[in-house]
C-alpha cells in the first residue's frame, strides 16, 4: 500500500504557499496601519484651533487652512448638487425608460469610459471646457463642474444597482393601477432605491475630497478666504485650493511639512469617516433588500 502521509515535497510547497498568502495579507494590513498611524501621529499635533479657523498670513507668519476647508466643503456640495440629478436621471433612464438596446449600450459604455479616465485628463478637459469655453476661468465652480463629470459614473452605477434590486412587481402593481411612468418611479421605485443613491453620494463625496489632479488647473491654488456665500461673482470666479491641493502646495512648493501632515491627518479622518458611513449605508441597503426578498 502506498504511503499514508502527504509526500514531503507537496507538504513543503503547501506550507510555503500558505505562508506567502498570510504574508501578503499581513503586508497589506501593515501598510494601512503604518500609513494611518504615521500620518495621524505626525499630523494631529499640528491640528490647532488657529490652523482650523484662520487663513494663512505671511505678515503674522501663521498658518491657517480655513479657506481650504471651506473650499473642500463647497466643492463637495456643488459637485454633488450637480451630479445627483444627472447621475440619478441617467440611471433611471437606463433601467426604466431606455427602449433601444443600442442606446443603453452607448450610455453604459460612456459611463465605463468616464470611470476609466484619469483625473489629470479630467483636469485638462475641465480647463478647456469649463474654464475657457464657458469662460468660468480658474474657479471653484469650474472645479465643481469637472468633479461632477468625474463622479457621474459612480452615481450612475450605484443608483442603477439599487434600481435593479427593486422588484418588478412593484412597477407592475403601480402601472396596473393606472399611474403614469414618472408617478410610478417617484412613488414606488425611487423610495426603496434611496439607500443606493445615498451610497453613491458618499462614495462620490469621498472621491471629491481626495481628488487633486483634476482641481489643479480648474479650481486652482488660491489660498485666501473666499466669501463665496456673499455673491455669485465670488462663487463663480474666484480660484480656491481644496485641502488636497493645499497639501500639495504646502508640501511641494512651500516645504511646510507640519501643515502638510496636519492636512493629511484631516484627510485621513475624513476618508475613514466617509468609508464607515458608506459601509453603514451599504449594510442598511443589503438588509432592506433581504427583507424585500423574504
Amino acid at each position: 500500500m502506498s504511503t499514508q502521509t502527504l509526500s514531503r515535497a507537496r507538504w513543503v510547497r503547501g506550507c510555503i504557499l500558505r505562508l506567502l498568502l498570510c504574508l501578503s495579507a499581513a503586508l497589506v494590513c501593515a501598510l494601512l496601519a503604518g500609513l494611518t498611524g504615521y500620518i495621524l501621529l505626525r499630523g494631529l499635533p499640528h491640528v490647532t484651533w488657529q490652523l482650523l479657523f484662520t487663513q494663512s498670513s505671511v505678515l503674522r507668519g501663521t498658518r491657517g487652512i480655513l479657506p481650504n476647508l471651506l473650499n473642500t466643503l463647497y466643492v463637495v456640495l456643488a459637485a454633488l448638487a450637480l451630479v445627483l440629478p444627472l447621475g440619478v436621471g441617467a440611471a433611471i433612464y437606463l433601467t426604466e425608460y431606455a427602449a433601444s438596446p443600442r442606446l443603453v449600450r452607448a450610455v453604459e459604455f460612456a459611463a465605463e469610459t468616464l470611470a476609466g479616465i484619469p483625473s489629470i485628463i479630467y483636469g485638462l478637459a475641465g480647463m478647456l471646457l469649463f474654464c475657457q469655453l464657458l469662460g468660468l476661468g480658474t474657479s471653484l465652480l469650474a472645479g465643481s463642474l469637472t468633479l461632477a463629470v468625474m463622479t457621474l459614473p459612480i452615481v450612475i452605477r450605484t443608483t442603477q444597482e439599487s434600481l435593479k434590486s427593486v422588484p418588478q412587481s412593484y412597477r407592475e402593481g403601480a402601472l396596473g393601477l393606472g399611474s403614469g411612468k414618472w408617478h410610478m418611479i417617484r412613488t414606488v421605485v425611487l423610495p426603496p432605491a434611496m439607500d443606493g443613491i445615498v451610497t453613491g453620494c458618499i462614495l462620490s463625496a469621498g472621491r471629491v475630497v481626495g481628488e487633486s489632479a483634476a482641481l489643479l488647473f480648474t479650481a486652482g491654488m488660491g489660498m485666501s478666504l473666499n466669501r463665496f456665500f456673499a455673491s455669485w461673482e465670488n462663487f463663480a470666479h474666484s480660484s480656491g485650493a481644496t485641502l488636497t491641493v493645499a497639501l500639495y502646495v504646502y508640501a511641494k512648493e512651500r516645504a511646510d511639512f507640519d501643515t502638510a501632515f496636519a492636512i493629511a491627518a484631516l484627510l485621513m479622518l475624513f476618508t475613514l469617516a466617509l468609508n464607515f458611513t458608506a459601509k453603514w449605508a451599504g449594510r442598511r441597503l443589503r438588509r432592506r433588500k433581504g427583507e424585500r426578498n423574504e
Binding site: M1, S2, T3, Q4, T5, L6, R10
Partner: peptide, 18 residues
C-alpha cells in the same frame, strides 16, 4: 477502509481521497 480507521486524525485525507 481496509481495516484502517479513516476518521483517525493522523489519516491523510489526500491519500484517502486518492
Amino acid at each position: 477502509y481496509r481495516g484502517k480507521e479513516i476518521y483517525d486524525p493522523c489519516v491523510d485525507v489526500t491519500w484517502l481521497r486518492k
